[in-house]
């Protein structure tokens, strides 16, 4: 059904309607490009798959609100990651406050068994992830987050936006993290 069938709008508001439509399309374009890396990043932060799905969807809804309210469009990827990062941190705080015993399920490796892969692939993937996880545990949280966002293809400026750090701090975290990891991976 066409949008116009649902709500006939006066001709004077066509411009606004077109603007809103283009913002919606922009959000969907970002979704197509970013939802998987974003979900992987949220998963890396230790959020379970279902919560990660909700966080990612909520992040894009907030992006839409941000655009409808005429928000800045220059650093949308960094903005998106910052929202997702904060939502993930909030979810973790809420999760911890419940004091349940599900904490071990909230690791990125928790989803492996459910993935549609063969046993061999599963084992290899597990090994890779475990090695990666062990190595990453040697780093500070800031170094880990900077390196993971960098691995997702974000520029330093976008990482700085996402983590609320300066660009030079991001550079230092990346360099120190890599210095530490190059002997471990």
């Amino acid at each position: 059904m066409e949008r116009a069938d649902l709500l006939p709008l006066p001709a004077t508001w066509d411009g606004q309607y077109v603007k809103d439509e283009s913002r919606l399309q922009l959000v969907l374009e970002h979704y197509d490009r970013e939802q998987l890396p974003l979900r992987r990043y949220v998963g890396f932060l230790g959020v379970d798959a279902e919560t990660a799905r909700e966080i990612v969807q909520e992040s894009f809804l907030r992006l839409h609100e941000h655009l409808l309210e005429g928000g800045d469009q220059t650093h949308l990827r960094g903005w998106l990651y910052r929202v997702a990062h904060n939502l993930a941190r909030n979810a973790q705080s809420a999760f911890r406050s419940k004091k349940t015993d599900r904490l071990t399920d909230a690791t990125p490796t928790g989803d492996l068994a459910a993935a549609d892969v063969s046993i061999e692939e599963d084992l290899l993937a597990r090994e890779r992830v475990e090695l990666f996880q062990r190595a990453m545990q040697e780093l500070s949280a800031a170094q880990r987050e900077c390196l993971v966002l960098r691995a997702q293809g974000l520029k330093y400026r976008e990482i700085a936006e996402a983590l609320n750090l300066s660009v030079s701090t991001v550079g230092e975290n990346v360099q120190r993290g890599l210095d530490r990891l190059k002997g471990l991976l």
Binding site: L36, L112, A114, R128, V148, L181
Partner: peptide
């Protein structure tokens, strides 16, 4: 090499998507 290893390790974390999410 370390950078590539991080990217591979991260890519090995499975991400499940459901039909109709978009």
């Amino acid at each position: 090499r370390a950078s590539v290893a991080i990217e591979s390790g991260l890519a090995a974390i499975p991400v499940r998507t459901q039909l109709g999410e978009r």
